[in-house]
Each structure stands twice: as structure tokens, then as C-alpha cells.
Amino acid sequence: MSEWKEFKLGDIADKIGDGLHGTPAYSDDGEYYFINGNNLLNGKISIKNETKKVTEAEYQKHKKPLSNRTILLGINGTIGNLAFYNGEKCVLGKSACYINISSDIDNFFIYYKMLSKEFQSTLLEIATGTTIINVPLKGLREIPILLPTIAEQKDIAGVLSALDEKIDLLHRQNKTLEAMAEALFRQWFVEEAEESWEEGKLGDEFIITMGQSPPGESYNEDGVGIPMYQGNADFEFRFPKNRVFTTDPKRFAEKYDTLISVRAPVGAQNMANEECCIGRGVASLRYKIKSDLYSYTYYKIRYHMLEIAGFNDTGTVFGSIGKEDLWGIKTQIPSTLESEEIDLRLKPLNDRIIENCFQIRSLEKLRDTLLPKLMSGEVKVDINRDI
């Protein structure tokens, strides 16, 4: 730690500023996206379906001095989101701050420093406002940053970047595998459908369990009891995150049951990775005759998800789907033998996705454990060690 020195964020940045305080002239034909803090996700600028666009002329009016040294930070409403700028065509809104890191500082090290709980907590401490909180640029520039030598900055950033690159690779593999599995199921279920298949309903083929929320006093975030999932807020890619636990579960899903969100919004889909409690916002589905046909179950429900999601438009306040509606969705029902055969074809793809998801969580846990220790100098980098 003797070589670590304290600086202010403003001392190690050539420029810190924020985006447009106002609304640009949007254009559906524009080439530039209007980016705010909620577009900054996992180190990248995320373009969403609802992201507005502007023209070249509007960009020229509001452009900022962004470069490959720029880190973007959410400072209004969505506090603490981070992304590197990689030449994307964009105009920044006021909730996106740009920080141009000086050339003698490793910008990847600063990115991970800003990702740390210590930095994120500082952002919340200096934020102002009641309804919508905001991090003032003046306060941002004053945040202390502890730095080692440039060589150690690069070594630390290299370790953390290697972990993130592996995580990103696994995410990309999963997207490819998911697309392959969906195409395989659709080809079999639609293009190769047999006339002998029976007309039926989802409830004829699957055990459907509608969730029930436990008493509020049984909830905790300390890992006591079993995981409880309430709906879309808990769902990630394939498996939900363990956010809330309960000591008084009422309804259960088994490992590898298909889970769907049945309330506001309807239609998000996941899979249970362990026995869990399902609250009123979740339903679970399991193949009736052989519970180990979880791949067939998952992609069969995914095929019907557009129809299930259509229930978002029902209800007086928010969308929901009840057990009778879910049970009654019409479907073709192959024989058990045929369902087993397609499950065998889907299983290698699905199991690889599942394995990748477990590996992603393991790598994320390692990264999150190392991050504060590396950033404080508690743990030194062994540059000869493979990640």
C-alpha cells in the first residue's frame, strides 16, 4: 500500500460533464440514439426498443467530447450504472455523465474502481433530491480515488477484465444455444407436426402450480429458509436470482420446473435451479407423466409465450393470467414417447446453457469477491497466475 496515492476523481480526468438538460428533436429516421443512465448496463451502452433516436443535425447541436478514454456513469435517477464509450452513435441525456480519463491513468482500472461498493456508496451519499436523486458534478469531481502505480493498475484491471471477458463469452454462447434450441423445437413442433397429435390444453399435459405469497413477517434477505420468487423482478437469463427468502413457504416449485411471471408483467420465463417458494406473481409448470422432461417443458411453454404474454392487456389495473386461463391455453399434445425424443434432442443444448449459467454465477462471485480486495490493495496481483 506504500505506493498507493490518493487523488480526486477530477484530478485524473481531463473532462467531466453531463448530457443534454432538455429534450432533443426525436426522429424515427435518425442514426443517433438518445442515451440516459438506464442505457448503461454491464459496461456497455444498451440500446432498447424504446430508445429514442435523433438526426445527424441534432447530434451536432448536442454532441459531447467522447473518446475511447470515456467512461459513462448514471447520475440522475438511475445512479451508478456504468459503460465504456466505444464509438456508438449517441447523444447523452442529463442522467448520463461522461468522464474522460487522463492518458496516464488506466481507464479500465478506474471503471472497476467506480464499480466497487465503496464508490457506489459514495455516489448515494453525495446525491441530492427527494423524488429523483441526482449526483452533482461538483461532488463527483471531489470523490477520493486511491491509485497504485500504473503498472499495478493495469495488472489489477487485467485480472478483472479477464473474468468479465469469460462471463461475456458465456452469455454470448447462451444466446446462440437458446436460439438453436428454440429453432429446433419450432421445426419439430410446427413444421414436422404429426396428424396423430391430440388437440388439448396446457393443463392436460403439465402440472400447473399458481404461487401464493407467504406472510410478510417470514421474509428475509439473510438466506434463512428457502428462496422465494415473486415475479419478473427476480428473473434473469434462465434462472432467477436469490433476493428474498422465506421461513414459511406456501407453494413450491421443484428444481428445473419452468417458471413464468403471471402478474404485471405477464410472460417472463425462467427455470427453477433448486426447490423454491413461488409467490403470487409466479406459476410453475412440470410435465405430468415424467418430471425429468424439463427441456421439452421449457421450450413448449416458450413456444406459447406470446399467447401467454397477451394477458398483459387484460385486467383493470395491471395484466394478469389466472390458473384457468393458463390451464386452458390450447396446444397440440404429442405422445409421451415423442415428447421424450424431442427432449433428448433439446437436452444437450439446454444442459449446456444451464452449465454456463452456473459458471457465470461462479465467476461473478469470484469477481465481486476480488474487486474490493484488489481495489484496496489487500490482495496483490500475481501476474503469472492464470484466471
Rank of each mutant, 00 (worst) to 15 (best):
K53P: 03
K53V: 11
T55Q: 05
T55Y: 02
T55E: 03
A57K: 15
E58L: 04
E58G: 07
Y59E: 10
Y59T: 13
Q60C: 11
K61W: 06
K61M: 08
H62R: 09
H62L: 11
K63L: 11
K64G: 01
L66K: 02
S67Q: 03
N68Y: 03
N68E: 11
R69Q: 08
I71V: 10
I75W: 00
N76Q: 11
G77K: 08
T78A: 09
I79P: 06
G80P: 04
F84V: 05
Y85M: 04
N86T: 11
N86K: 12
G87P: 03
G87M: 03
E88R: 06
K89L: 11
K89T: 12
C90A: 13
C90K: 05
V91W: 00
V91Y: 01
L92H: 01
L92R: 02
G93T: 06
G93C: 02
K94T: 13
K94D: 03
S95A: 09
A96M: 00
A96R: 00
C97I: 03
Y98E: 00
I99S: 01
I99N: 01
N100K: 02
N100F: 00
I101M: 02
S102E: 05
S103V: 13
S103G: 02
D104A: 09
I105M: 05
D106N: 14
D106V: 14
N107E: 08
N107I: 13
N107Y: 07
F108T: 15
F108A: 12
F109Y: 14
Y112L: 12
M114C: 08
L115F: 07
S116Y: 04
S116G: 10
S116F: 03
E118F: 08
E118K: 14
E118R: 14
T122Y: 06
T122M: 12
T122K: 14
L123C: 10
L123Y: 08
L124E: 15
A127R: 10
T128A: 11
G129L: 06
T130Q: 08
T130R: 06
I132T: 14
I133D: 04
P136A: 12
L137P: 02
L137N: 02
R141E: 14
E142N: 14
E142W: 04
P144F: 05
I145F: 05
L147Y: 09
P148M: 13
I150H: 10
E152W: 07
K154C: 09
K154V: 14
D155Y: 05
D155I: 12
D155G: 08
I156P: 06
A157H: 03
A157P: 07
G158V: 12
G158L: 07
V159L: 07
L160A: 13
S161E: 11
S161K: 13
L163F: 10
D164Q: 11
E165Q: 12
E165R: 09
K166W: 01
K166S: 12
K166C: 09
L169M: 09
L169S: 12
L169Y: 03
L169N: 07
L170G: 02
R172A: 12
Q173D: 10
N174S: 07
N174F: 00
T176D: 09
L177S: 04
L177M: 05
A181G: 06
E182A: 15
A183F: 02
A183P: 03
